[in-house]
């Protein structure tokens, strides 16, 4: 088991290293002079050649590429991600402030998506072709097809502006406070919608195939109540394919965070990054991309390790 964990971590670290290379190279693969990425358009217009050379030296862009890369990696290993070109604040400190907000929003939407996905999926499968099932199936297609940013705006229009039940944007405070909960509800529902719809379809089809298995028939024949049969016997097995897509769900949610945080002015890493892109603050963009991708890779390693604990066959494959 330890060997498996070590192997998995080694693979993950090569991927993270590769991501760092890509993020570093992005600057140099861009058309034009890399120093352009460190200048806002208004500065670029009035900057003298000397000023441009000064910026080039300040960011080490005058050194050979391999030295620049070495410096980049050394800084990252020391969790020094440089300073924002706009605010001149240390980027690592800014990210540390915003990371918990993204994590909180991600976890709440993941939880919502899974609860809704499993409950509705099971209800739909156990009442096949009923009114519930016939409503849920087309709705699940609607859920995966809605553009998140538009859904977010529509929910905001309805619940924040028309009904005035929930705040339109921002983070209200810790999750355990009423303000915190009220603020997170709209962005979390928006972000979880796609995953919930996907899960409903997956749980439904997985449940349907499991409900036809012999052991389910045996459980029924033993006289167990339908609830026990469904939840204790069928659902446990039906969840296996569902668990395998948790890694994918986390990806969708982390990617979605970048967009949805911007819609709801949620003070997380995603919004930080989009603001940086629009302000041409490239070091912040690099650091944010790196943080989100690393989180995603590490979550996948954790998920893989959990599978290996649950299902020993995986360790030896």
């Amino acid at each position: 088991m330890i060997a498996y964990v070590i192997r998995r971590l080694l693979i993950a670290s090569t991927v993270i290293l590769g991501v760092s290379v890509l993020v570093f190279l992005a600057l140099h693969l861009a058309p034009g002079d890399p120093v352009d990425m460190f200048l806002s358009p208004e500065v670029a217009l009035r900057a003298s050649p000397e000023q441009i050379e000064q910026i080039r030296a300040q960011w080490g862009l005058d050194k050979p590429l391999h030295i620049q890369f070495y410096d980049f990696i050394v800084r990252i290993v020391h969790l020094d991600m440089g300073r924002s070109m706009r605010t001149n604040r240390p980027i690592a400190a800014d990210l540390a402030l915003r990371y918990p907000a993204t994590l909180e929003l991600g976890l709440v939407s993941l939880l919502l998506a899974n609860v809704v996905g499993v409950v509705v999926g099971v209800a739909s499968a156990t009442r096949r072709n009923s009114a519930i099932d016939n409503t849920v199936r087309p709705l699940s297609f609607v859920g995966v097809s809605l553009p998140g940013f538009w859904l977010g705006l529509m929910l905001m229009l309805l619940f924040a502006y028309h009904l005035a039940w929930l705040p339109a944007s921002g983070r209200g405070g810790p999750l355990w406070t009423s303000a915190g909960l009220r603020h997170i509800l709209l962005p979390a529902v928006t972000m979880g919608m796609g995953s919930a719809a996907l899960l409903v379809r997956l749980v439904r089809s997985s449940m349907l195939s499991v409900l036809n298995e012999d052991y389910v028939r045996t459980a029924r024949a033993k006289g167990l109540s339908e609830r026990v049969v469904v939840y204790r016997h069928a659902l446990r097995n039906a969840m296996i394919p569902v668990i395998t897509i948790i890694g994918l769900q986390v990806g969708a949610i982390l990617g979605g965070a970048v967009v949805i945080e911007s819609v709801f002015a949620w003070p997380g890493v995603g919004r930080f990054m989009i603001t940086a892109i629009n302000g041409r603050d490239f070091p912040v963009v690099q650091a944010s991309v790196l943080v989100i991708a690393t989180t995603f890779v590490l979550v996948n390693v954790a998920v893989d390790i959990v599978y290996a604990v649950v299902d020993p066959r995986i360790r030896y494959s």
């Binding site: 993270i16 990806g251 970048v258 963009v285 989100i292 991708a293």
Partner: peptide, 10 residues
């Protein structure tokens, strides 16, 4: 390793 839309955004 770039989740969802992140690669396109980058």
């Amino acid at each position: 390793a770039f989740p969802g839309i992140l690669l396109a955004i980058t």
